[in-house]
């Protein structure tokens, strides 16, 4: 048990160390901004990875939950004057409830039908956000007030970097704990074979619902904080492409690997920014990288790299 804790701690410490020393290498606020965006994506991906990697369920609609969180904060704080913390909690509670309500019927679905259903939910959310322009500002989005807590205003990249860093560490810690708990083992059983898990007495349905709700809440919280940080939110943050992007990050980094999800989020947040030098070839390169990674490393970046480096060395 002690050793297990130790192992988990090493990963966390490593992540913490990377987060701590990273700003020293970033020349200006723009890079910090990218790091913050990567952090937000990583938070959502860690949650989504629980669902995809461990519970074996696909969701093509998680950006919807992110969007609801973001707009809950934007609207409740901006239009109705709520304190930001309250708005964040309200958004998370709403998303949690919504996820709970849809989870039961939806998680009954298998494979592509589940993909379709979650995709539908995500798209409907983004269309509502786009259309109810009286509330949400329509397709061009809305401005969001800065985050205030105990009279302190969180403002600027330097402050937010640490906020996101701490949030990410917390989420990763939570996720690692969950995976190592008895429930986590049950979850892995679900991914292996649902029917088999049920036969040996694992209540798979309950676990799936729980993980679905948890990952949705992670997304909502990230969405709320993102809204305050960015100061501008658009329905694009909730749409199909964002959902796909999130799933891609998880799978790209490595399914069933919490740190893989983090790495996937970081790499795929950086990639489009780095690819602006390719100008017109941007999409080709991005699409090509996605295809190539998945074809040649179907397990994802991190697990494949972890297996590759020592193997080379031995040879």
């Amino acid at each position: 048990m002690n050793a297990l804790l130790h192992g988990r701690l090493t990963g966390l410490l490593a992540l913490g160390a990377v987060i701590a020393i990273l700003p020293a290498f970033l020349p200006n606020n723009f890079y910090l901004d990218i790091a913050i965006l990567a952090g937000f994506n990583a938070v959502v991906c860690v949650g989504l990875n629980l669902l995809i990697g461990y519970a074996g369920q696909i969701s093509l609609g998680h950006a919807g939950f992110f969007g609801i969180g973001a707009y809950a904060s934007g609207v409740l704080v901006g239009t109705y004057g709520w304190p930001p913390v309250l708005a964040l909690l309200a958004g998370a509670a709403f998303v949690g409830l919504m996820a709970f309500l849809v989870a039961k019927p939806i998680l009954r679905l298998k494979g592509h039908y589940l993909a379709m259903a979650t995709l539908g939910i995500g798209i409907i959310v983004s269309i509502v956000l786009r259309t109810e322009s009286g509330l949400t500002g329509g397709p061009d989005g809305m401005m969001v007030e800065p985050f205030r807590i105990f009279g302190v205003e969180l403002y600027g990249e330097k402050v937010w970097y640490w906020v996101v860093g701490v949030l990410l560490l917390g989420v990763v810690w939570l996720s690692l704990n969950l995976i190592d708990s008895p429930m986590g083992r049950a979850l892995r059983a679900v991914h292996g074979s649902e029917v088999a898990a049920e036969v040996v007495g694992v209540d798979t349905a309950r676990f799936k619902v729980l993980v679905f709700v948890l990952s949705a809440v992670f997304a909502s919280v990230a969405g709320s904080l993102f809204a305050h940080y960015a100061g501008l939110i658009t329905p694009a943050k909730a749409d199909f492409f964002k959902s796909i992007e999130l799933v891609t990050m998880v799978v790209f980094g490595g399914m069933a690997s919490t740190f893989g999800a983090v790495v996937g989020a970081v790499v795929l947040t950086l990639l489009p920014q780095a690819l602006t030098v390719f100008q017109d070839y941007q999409q080709i390169v991005l699409g090509g990288i996605l295809m190539a990674t998945m074809v040649f490393m179907p397990k994802g970046l991190l697990p494949t790299l972890a297996a590759l480096i020592p193997a080379r060395r031995r040879a």
Binding site: G7, T10, G11, A14, V18, V266, L301, L305, A306, I309
Partner: peptide, 12 residues
């Protein structure tokens, strides 16, 4: 774990 750390650091 160490390898994991190294990989993360490497990638980042």
């Amino acid at each position: 774990r160490k390898r994991l750390f190294a990989t993360i650091a490497f990638t980042a």
